[in-house]
Design a binder for these strands. Structure first.
Lengths: 214, 214
DNA sequence: ACCTGAACACCGTTCAAGT
DNA sequence: ACCTGAACACCGTTCAAGT
């Protein structure tokens, strides 16, 4: 009974279906940020959007697909924001610093989105249907890993496993939203500076090594 | 209808209730590690323990209390393991390294427990009844923060916010289990070394500073 | 094609009833 | 005190029925 139509736009979806999906995703984000994952049932989300619960099942294969779309939408928003914030960095060290600081600032300026994202990542994380969520995380790891590897090849970073450092950094980054919500008064700019300094010290070539290498 | 008896042992619980609670918690851990959070219903856990689902509600106020007990039990196991592994460290730098390496090794040698812990932290994390879970995390942050602060006071660590560094480190640590499960072939000893090296570089006083300080 | 509302199997929790 | 099994309100999903 899922819509499989021919007259469609970008992803084989009709105009009205694309609009409904958007509406439902937005309602889900609002419900998640207001009520938390546990209470974000189809009934509540539908109520929030002014539609029937059955309509959500009509437009999404299941609950998991809906929340994956939530994650995808927020990730896309974040990607655009970070790309803009990194801009043209003069070095890999600087790019890494801007990435870290940019993420802290994004968390600060998009609290509702980040809160909703945290809710769904936590709520859906352990389940088998959270496969797409895991693959999106894997993609983030891969991007950071690539950046670290290039920095090593350009001689800016010391010798470490790019994969493990990426996982380590992503862990630190993912801890930011919870901290900002736990302590709303946190000095965000200071947090950004501290975190980027911490990882600059962790990844950069040491002074002695740089002397040795020339 | 919850048991409120007088003739009891350590925590106001009768012998049989303590035994039942233990049995149920163990069954929950096994169910969590085998089926994941979403499928760990009372019905499944009770089936695993050979009792009725109603009995779980009889011994625990609600689902949240059961999973909080799961977290508490595993945390206690981990605390004992880490305390033993740290032992008598000669310095704060060494203590921090042993803590990090010890945690990686614990994750490797207690996969079922760590997997269950991850499931319940993810599943219960965003909810309002996950308050006790959050407070246990806050306690972990506090312990690491305290250790970092002392290391600073002894002149071993550079000047940073102990709170933010603790949150950053805990984030990296909490990313370990997922990585070990995502890549079962990971060289655990190498992971431990890389991570402890990374944070040693991040927190230690720089060479120039040490020369300055004497 | 799009949408509703009833029906279904499940969930956590309560509670009368047994021992 | 300890335990069961039926009952309750809820959940996600399905589906006949409307337009």
């Amino acid at each position: 009974m899922r819509p499989r139509n021919g007259a469609a736009n970008q992803k084989g979806r009709s105009f009205i279906e694309a609009a409904r999906r958007d509406q439902i995703v937005q309602a889900a984000i609002e419900t998640l940020s207001e009520l938390g994952y546990a209470k974000s049932s189809f009934a509540r989300i539908a109520e929030h959007a002014g539609i029937s619960a059955g309509l959500i099942s009509y437009h999404f294969d299941n609950k998991s697909e809906l929340f994956q779309q939530v994650v995808a939408d927020i990730n896309a928003l974040m990607d655009g924001w970070l790309t803009e914030h990194i801009g043209e960095a003069a070095s890999y060290r600087e790019a890494l610093q801007r990435l870290i600081e940019g993420f802290v600032l994004f968390c600060d300026s998009h609290r509702a989105h980040v809160l909703a994202l945290g809710q769904v990542l936590a709520g859906v994380g352990g389940q088998e249907n959270g496969e797409l969520v895991r693959s999106q995380r894997e993609q983030s790891v891969g991007q950071i890993e690539q950046m670290l590897r290039e920095g090593q090849e350009h001689g800016e970073f010391r010798d470490f496993s790019p994969r493990l450092m990426a996982v380590t950094l992503l862990g630190s980054i993912e801890a930011i939203p919870a901290e900002l919500f736990a302590r709303p008064g946190t000095d965000v700019a200071a947090y950004a500076k501290e975190l980027s300094m911490t990882y600059d010290l962790a990844v950069r070539r040491s002074r002695l090594s740089r002397i040795t290498r020339g």
